[in-house]
């Protein structure tokens, strides 16, 4: 175990997999000479050379498309999209190609491809550079969508994604790179894709979350614990395929559910999780499900307005109190 940042954990995963498998290579904007805009691949160009660390033009369509082509031909590309907002320029390649080819050609084509990208708001980058549209990508069968919320999960999931036979859309959060945590050194340390994880046990309320909002939810749980409320926090980690078992088990125990996501509420993760709980555990619910999510506006630049729009620890605490029908004087 080492106490390292999320950035170091992701970097470690990439480095280990590149040493393990000659077919693994990195391509994207500023991944080489610059060292990655979030410094994840700093030093990689010197270590692995230009063949395996490939700076590309600013052309998201062909970054993803060429990575798919290389994957079809048997390589293991890790394509980096500088931010998730730019993934929309490659949307056709992601959803019409990567997600479809294996099925449409009856298994003859495989796309063992990882698209690494960075999402999330909170850095005053305004509306077009601050989105959390994770759910958009999770809509498509054929794609796997992963969004880790701890350094250990980031390492283990990224290694699993690189070894996976299917296209994996891997979403990192822009404000989590400095987050520290215990991360196994073991080069065979893998976290399976499609398995949700209980990050904190509790008996009173279930919070379901992932990525940055996992950390926000854990902070809320900590605060509530001081008031005697025991919150169970389930981390989805993978948005597709969605593993509901730990969620359902938890709800059957706590009978109350709050879903916390950074993206917009409408048609969101909360909508999906709440519906599945209603379908499969309706009789266990003692209160309506509450959703905590982003205000339905394009994110503004102004810091105070931006923070108003993003879910905060207090919002989560408030929602938990709500599902407990708990009146709190403030």
């Amino acid at each position: 175990m080492a106490h390292i940042t999320m950035r170091e954990a992701i970097s470690q995963a990439l480095r280990e997999e590149m040493y393990r498998d000659e077919r693994v290579f990195i391509m994207g904007e500023e991944v080489g000479v610059w060292g990655g805009t979030y410094a994840v691949t700093r030093g990689f160009l010197d270590e692995f050379g230009e063949k395996r660390v490939r700076d590309t033009p600013i052309a998201e369509g062909v970054i993803v498309g060429a990575a798919i082509g290389a994957a079809i031909a048997g390589l293991r590309p890790v394509a980096e999209l500088m931010t998730i907002n730019f993934a929309f320029l490659a949307m056709d390649q992601i959803v019409n190609h990567a997600a479809k080819l294996h099925y449409m050609f009856n298994g003859q084509i495989r796309c063992p491809l990882v698209i690494r990208t960075v999402g999330g708001g909170g850095r005053q980058l305004a509306a077009t550079h601050s989105q959390t549209p994770d759910v958009v990508f999770a809509h498509f069968p054929g794609l796997k969508v992963v969004a880790p919320g701890t350094p250990a999960d980031a390492k283990g999931l990224l290694k699993a994604a690189i070894r996976d036979e299917d296209p994996v859309f891997f979403i990192e959060h822009a404000t989590l790179y400095q987050l520290r945590g215990e991360v196994p050194d073991d080069e065979e340390y893998l976290v399976p894709i499609g398995v949700s994880d209980v990050k904190r046990e509790g008996k009173d309320v279930t919070i379901v979350s992932y990525s940055k909002m996992l950390q926000t939810s854990l902070q809320a749980a900590e605060q509530l614990a001081k008031e005697g409320i025991e919150v169970e926090v389930v981390d989805l980690r993978t948005l597709r395929p969605l593993d509901m078992r730990p969620v359902l088990e938890s709800v059957r125990k706590t009978n109350r559910l709050v879903v916390v996501e950074e993206g917009w509420r409408s048609y969101g993760i909360g909508a999906e999780v709440a519906t599945r709980v209603m379908e499969q555990a309706f009789d266990y619910l003692d209160a309506p499900v509450r959703r905590v999510a982003q205000a339905e506006v394009p994110l503004p630049y102004n810091r105070r307005l931006e923070q108003m729009a993003l879910p905060q620890v207090e919002d989560v605490v408030h929602a938990v109190n709500d599902v407990l029908y708990r009146k709190v004087s403030s």
Partner: peptide, 11 residues
Amino acid sequence: HLPLATGVGLA
């Protein structure tokens, strides 16, 4: 498929 073919060329 033009980007795909480009990627096969890369491989």
